[in-house]
């Protein structure tokens, strides 16, 4: 059962759109809107290059990596990058899909150093392998912890029973 997130389009287009399309070119798989965020779907192999382009292209200048999250959709996982620019009032969301049997994505620590702990956390809790990351040792969990507690398949204590669904 594929549980895919759907986003509601609120804004049809923004002045940022043509510039992003031009900068990313063929690498951009899909562009959609969720509320005021522009969501770009990108193949995972191209992630580092896309991030670098978004960060360095004049007029885009996405200097700040706000958040890096991993979402487990059971059949696949998604790595979500929230970027924003300080010199311009715009923001963008990048998404890359990873099939459940092959959870690898290149690291973006070469683009923003601030991705470091976010990626370690993603490795810790979800088992996503950020290729090229300098040190993926456990961050939030202790060494020797078994399993990936962020995943949906990780058993939770009888919480639902306790509260009564």
């Amino acid at each position: 059962m594929a549980r895919e997130p759907q986003t509601r389009a609120e804004t049809s287009s923004s002045p940022l759109e043509p510039r992003v399309r031009e900068a990313l070119g063929q690498r951009l798989q899909e562009l959609s809107y969720s509320f005021d965020e522009m969501v770009l779907r990108i193949p995972r192999e191209e992630m580092v290059e896309c991030c670098r382009l978004l960060k360095t292209t004049p007029g885009l200048d996405f200097k700040l990596l706000r958040c890096l999250s991993v979402v487990d959709y059971v059949d696949f996982m998604e790595v979500v990058y929230h970027l924003s620019s300080l010199s311009h009032p715009h923001k963008v969301t990048l998404k890359a899909r990873l099939p459940a049997e092959d959870l690898r994505v290149p690291t973006v620590t070469t683009v923003w150093k601030g991705a470091d702990w976010h990626e370690r956390e993603g490795h810790d809790l979800f088992g996503v392998l950020f290729e090229g990351h300098p040190d993926l040792s456990p961050l939030l969990l202790y060494e020797g912890f078994e399993g990936y507690p962020g995943r949906k398949s990780y058993p939770m204590p009888e919480q639902r029973e306790l509260y009564g669904e």
Binding site: P5, Q6, T7, F35
Partner: peptide
């Protein structure tokens, strides 16, 4: 409804 949002606020320590 189905969807996703990213909301940020200014905390005393940052975003």
């Amino acid at each position: 409804p189905k969807g996703e949002v990213y909301v940020r606020t200014e905390n005393p320590r940052g975003e």
